[in-house]
Write a protein that binds this DNA or RNA. Structure first.
Lengths: 233, 233
DNA sequence: CCAAAAGTGTTGAATTTACACCCATGA
DNA sequence: TCATGGGTGTAAATTCAACACTTTTGG
């Protein structure tokens, strides 16, 4: 960026965005849920026919985060509740044909939103920890995104992005448990959450369950969801 | 990256790398040290004459991290001990003339190494928390890099990258104190470091000081410096 | 009234923090 | 021997983790 004149070689490196989108889907019959992500089938070389992360080139008139959101919506009809930059991948052998630098985002969507996704012959959901061989270096990218999600759940409030406006602490705990793949103590989890300013009891209760009606909570809008990089404010 | 054919517009978005380099310099007369970083003066529009982060375009035959290191060496002669990707900046109004996406790295260099930097009319060191108005969005980028450095010092062992092979715990503590800008309890700091596998006592002592000779330590090479992103292994 | 989830209380362990105090050296 | 930084000991405060126990609902 020190040199404002694009080098004559600039066009030889193409720039693209991709997004790793996570949703939570309740396992059949069980209480637990598992992480899933949407992939799109490639319809040209290289890796024709393989599954890949949704994405595409950057339009010169849009910011890169916006480009990620647009490609995601165009291919899957998804609008994530959370979107953050993951990493820029720029190794020279990522693509066998051309040289591509990919700026990858990761995103979270609510389960209801995930239902609306345009699923079809060329768009499908996969279990995040049981993927087929993907195009390019996308398996490694998903691994890294999973690591970031699991790390960040423990110190930020991104888990809320999987839920709606109003939720019970048990629902929130189930999200944490599904992401971290281990059971959490309900009593201690409750105290942790209530001691943080991020969640607020509404005073309402959820009726209709088979047992004691749990309290309902909502997000504290004045608390930032999490740091989303340098451009948050 | 889903579309392997570069769009006809690809050349309209140029791609560059920049690096925020931190070094520690002892303040005159005092015990404390302060963070400094090298900037280069721009010699063309836009922002002609302003100071900016070292960087430049990506060569199609090199990886982006390598490109960052190369530009850094070419303009300042510095070889950092630590280099990690910071963030990709891609807003549409970053540059008044063209559209540039910058992948920014941050780096640490040892003090001795910093002495060797090619300082001149167009390369100078600045105090990290007292910068003039820089070109583009570089002030904001440096702020973010500072935040990352301060955050990461607390849970990783990157502070070692400011020191040589062998060091005393007091030297290491001074690094932490300079980065965090607050005093740390020597007794507790010592225990923290010794309880971690990252540092190992050599058994040697440093003689020549004015007081009791302190023990010398070295890094534990088998412990990763810190996570450097998805490409570490 | 019973089963089961919601929610509270309590205790011991582990960790953090503050600070008193002894040690070893050069001058 | 004294000033000073190197290094150890220790106890209070805080946080964490495990789990017993009480509450509230539907059936």
């Amino acid at each position: 960026m020190n040199d404002s004149t694009p080098s004559p070689d600039a066009a030889l490196v193409s720039l693209a965005v991709s997004t790793v989108v996570f949703a939570l889907r309740a396992d059949s019959e069980g209480e637990s849920a598992s992480l899933r992500l949407p992939l799109v089938r490639r319809i040209r070389e290289p890796f024709n026919g393989r599954w890949a992360l949704p994405g595409g080139p950057i339009d010169p008139t849009e910011g890169i985060e916006r480009a990620a959101g647009r490609h995601l919506f165009d291919t899957t009809a998804l609008s994530p509740t959370y979107l953050e930059q993951l990493y820029a991948f720029g190794g020279i052998d990522r693509s066998p044909s051309d040289r591509v630098v990919s700026i990858v985002y990761w995103a979270l969507v609510r389960s209801e939103e995930a239902e609306l996704a345009a699923v079809g012959e060329n768009v499908r959901w996969f279990a995040a920890d049981d993927l087929p061989p993907l195009a390019f270096d996308h398996n490694a990218i998903v691994e890294y995104a999973l690591w970031r999600l699991r790390t960040k759940v423990e110190y930020s409030r991104i888990a809320h992005a999987f839920l709606g406006e109003i939720f019970t602490l048990t629902e929130l705990r189930h999200v944490h448990e599904a992401v971290l793949r281990r059971a959490l103590d309900p009593a201690n989890f409750r105290r942790q959450m209530e001691s943080s300013p991020a969640v607020i009891a509404t005073g309402e209760h959820l009726s209709g369950g088979r047992h004691r009606p749990p309290r309902l909570y909502r997000y504290n809008g004045s608390v930032e969801l999490t740091d989303r990089g340098p451009l948050s404010p």
